[in-house]
Design a binder for these strands. Sequence first.
DNA 1: GGGGGAACTTAGCAGCAATTAT
DNA 2: ATAATTGCTGCTAAGTTCCCCC
Length: 745
Amino acid sequence: MGREKDVKEDRKTKHKVTKLNMRPNGNEVAEAGGDSAKSTKSTEKTPNGKIKKIKAPKTEKLESPSNFSEPDDGNFTTKKKGVKRRRTKDEPADVPTSEALKNSSSTKRNGGKHKKRHHSEEESDGEPLKKHAKKKPKTDVKIEEGEQPVSKKSKKTKEEIKEARELKIRQKEEEEQKRWRWWEEEKYEAGVKWRFLEHKGPYFPPDYQPLPDNVHFYYKGEPVKLSLAAEEVAVFFAQMLDHEYTTKKVFRENFFKSWRREMTHEEQLLIQDLDKCDFGEIHAMHKAKVEEKRNLSKEEKLVLKEANQKIVEEFGYCTLDHHRERIGNFKIEPPGLFRGRGEHPKQGKLKKRIQPEDVIINCSRESCIPVPPAGHHWKEVRHDNTVTWLASWTENIQGSIKYVMLNANSKLKGEKDWEKYEVARKLKQHVDGIREQYLIDMKSKEMRIRQRAVALYFIDKLALRAGNEKEEGETADTVGCCSLRVEHITLHKQLDGNECVVEFDFLGKDSIRYYNKVPVISKAFKNLKIFMENKDPGDELFDRLTTTMLNKHLSSLMPGLTAKVFRTYNASTTLQQQLKELTNDSMVNDAEKLLGYNRANRAVAILCNHQRAPPKTFEQSMANLQAKITSRKEQLALAKTELEQAKKDAKVKGSSDPKLQILVEKKKAAVKRCSESLLKLEVQATDREENKQIALGTSKLNYLDPRISVAWCKRMGVPIEKIYNKTQRDKFAWAIDMTETNFEF
DNA sequence: GGGGGAACTTAGCAGCAATTAT
DNA sequence: ATAATTGCTGCTAAGTTCCCCC
């Protein structure tokens, strides 16, 4: 059925208000010198770039461009067989997308298994696969154990330390045994997410605790005892008083409106001006509480921790098809004042307390249905196994639905993630054709086709997001590719020695600024010029294009293909290619290898514009590190002279004295130790400096096929723990388990 | 073909926990 | 033992995509 839709796609056009003259010709002009189709495909290489993109609120544009990187993909021609679903190692190649399954309900792939109906294993999940389970866990995973504490606790005896270490290893093994190796099992039929689901329902935040009698709110200097509801909201505001945004106009106005809505009639009559409110005592009380909590004794903290642990034990897990799975967010979001990112028009509004009466529960009919808190009932209990959520409620700020779902290490999330990367890998086989096509489309007579082509070119080349339309006034003003406006780009016929440069400057997701100057092919450049003609800065650049149209087109080119697949594809491809470039077998030092890995990772983060605010203590900690390096250098110099001296002594006094020889050896070792440690520090400094404004986590977690990293680790002899922490290893357990050294994305 | 809802992924950051320095 | 620093986790906002309805 996907097919038919695709055919229609072409007819769809969006007629926006702004009408432009079509210039069927504008781009007919032959491609000027610069880039040609070819060059887009293969050459432009990666970033050397420093990023210059900066967080929105910052005022000025940043100077220089990042040299954006164009992922090179041309080389991955290797035919990956791919398509047979093998559920074991290496090349799991093909996780049928639910898409694909739907589309081809009758194709062989499905034919093979879809009848399997009942995941027989109900009683014996994983049984048939035991053998795998046995053999895997023995691999490198634990070799690294050694890097644990080892010393530090000088109190403990060696025995104890050893014991502790062994215990840890044992626990690890145990955990590994218990792990649900879902990736070795057959998939369910399309659309079915689970067969059995049982849980305890979400965990609700504690009720509001009224203020003690000695803490007052004042209006115009007079103490006012607020009603419970109004008081609670006042406290929300008071708690944030140190925060900058309680000074923002929009925030204050929204808050005040929300607050007044919670007041009694009398309170509304009395309290008319936020500026006349004094939350000082409440604020002070709050700070005191925080401080108090901070000063709790070890034991008290432990008690709290254990109490917390109990809650997690009870509410934090569910049973899904006979496996215990961790829930990602089992806690209902507590009420508070909404803080959107960027210039959010709704910042400061009251985010209401959620009651069980607002919550829909989803679980198996035959499961033990969660019991609502005493005196309450659920909004609804349903049994829908085509969705993955356990509970949901509607939030009052945007009116959107919030879900309780499983943790990233769960089968449900993991399988989807795997599938995502398989789709991206499939793009590899189509991408050349698609690129050729959009270059041709840039010459189309139809404006909408050319717009589509140029937009796709950006998405591919720059890894921009699709960019849906957003309702004005509901959210911060941010854009993505399809929603770019004329004001967001500037064309430069010539810039910094390059032809046809497009300067991007806009706020993207989370109001993160995207700033980039990019040389583009002249076909694209000429089209852009035309798209911008007779438009106001606030008009849409691609006024005949929507994400829906773009995605329809894409899915006609390859099943499962959407705009965001390009981001995944280009990110993963870049990582793989950068790893090849930046690391090699001759590297001996782990620190060195890791720097290479991080740099490859960084190239991706730059491509995807994953930024972070420079850590508050950045300068300081950088200086500290530098100081350490200096002192280590001195130490090294000293060690070297001592070594020379020792050598000399040894020579002069002859080899007669074995002590001198030993001394020489000792000094040698000291020099080595010292210089290694220096190298490590220097590498660390470089890494940190380069990472100042770049967040590696997002790409690592969401865009980089973990199998690339796992394979790299194996080839380079780097323990996986150096690259993935515990959480990440859990999330990527499937990849760690199945990936062979020779994996190619 | 557009609007809106539903479901799910992607995103940065605050605050706490673990680790290391003093 | 305490303070400073770093690393993670949890949180929840903000996207994308699909689908249904008109």
